[in-house]
């Protein structure tokens, strides 16, 4: 997180606390730099949606401050520059894409009809068909077009690609990559589909039990950890303090370790985000 402090930040979170009885989201500090795609990963109930809701001021936080592009997250002028896509389309099912346009035209000052129509053509979405007749992929494409057609600087996606087939997901990821070409643009995307995060994200924030485990540049993260495969005898020779996560089987174990801690002579491979995430969660649960 510290290496991001010298960049302009799209989102800054400080001392955020939100409690729901037995669950507490607690973020001391998180800066999301402008011009990047930040992937937010974590298991169900880890706090991803609570964090996104806090950013959007959909819930009342207990304490802490959130700024977006330098302004308060409740400021309507700041919110003009935010596009949001949730896991489900939030318009009434009886609406058409044309109705969506009519409504959002009255909401956003920067609404761009021609850009919306361009997306409608690109996504092959009919303007006059009711949303309830759309497939899930079409609904998400419509949500994305609606979120992008007012030229937002920040795009927030909460599980937007879940339940969509790989072809449509790939199409949507291309739109994200196109959007991010402008260095003022930023995406914060929470997803369970780690492959999407691996493919598109520049940074990864891993949240578990309401706390940020790490927030790092994706490439740095991938270089930082290794998966070490070893037999049962070799396992005994590894310093237990260096093992971040462990997956055992009959023949031996797979260990998550920092790259510079891998013992000489051991076979190791690059750790994927999913490996890192799963092994850290497993390790925390076993403590």
């Amino acid at each position: 997180m510290n290496n991001m402090n010298n960049m302009a930040n799209a989102i800054e979170i400080k001392n955020l606390v939100k409690s729901y009885g037995d669950f507490t989201l607690s973020i001391d500090s998180l800066n999301i730099p402008s011009g990047c795609i930040m992937g937010l990963v974590g298991s169900n109930g880890a706090g991803k949606s609570t964090m996104i809701k806090s950013i959007l001021d959909l819930i009342k936080t207990d304490s802490g401050g959130i700024t977006i592009n330098g302004g308060g997250n409740r400021n309507p002028a700041v919110r003009e520059d935010i596009g949001v896509v949730f896991d489900e389309i939030k318009f009434p099912q009886i609406f058409t894409a044309s109705d969506v346009r009519t409504v959002l035209k009255g909401v956003y000052k920067n609404w761009d009809d021609s850009l919306y129509e361009k997306y409608m053509e690109q996504f092959k979405l009919p303007l006059k068909k009711k949303i309830k007749e759309f497939s899930r992929g079409m609904k998400m494409k419509l949500s994305l077009a609606a979120a992008l057609a007012h030229h937002p600087k920040l795009l927030i996606l909460d599980e937007a690609t879940s339940g969509i087939d790989p072809v449509v997901r790939d199409e949507i990821l291309d739109i994200f990559l196109d959007f991010i070409q402008d260095e003022e643009h930023t995406i914060l995307a929470s997803s369970h589909i780690i492959s999407d995060i691996e493919k598109a994200a520049d940074y990864v924030t891993f949240i578990n039990n309401g706390r940020i485990v790490f927030c790092e540049e994706k490439d740095t993260l991938m270089d930082k950890y290794r998966i070490v495969k070893c037999g049962n005898e070799e396992l005994d020779s590894v310093n237990a303090a260096d093992i971040i996560g462990k997956r055992t089987n009959t023949f031996g174990a797979e260990l998550l370790m920092l790259s510079d801690k891998v013992p000489e002579g051991f076979v190791s491979a690059k750790a994927g985000i999913e490996d890192i995430m799963l092994m850290i969660i497993k390790n925390e649960r076993s403590l």
Binding site: K90, P92, Y108
Partner: peptide, 18 residues
């Protein structure tokens, strides 16, 4: 009722309106 069903309240609250 329809708004509650489709989750409009959440979406509407993300707009640049108070």
């Amino acid at each position: 009722g329809y708004d509650e069903q489709c989750g409009w309240d959440q979406f509407g609250a993300s707009f640049p309106v108070s």
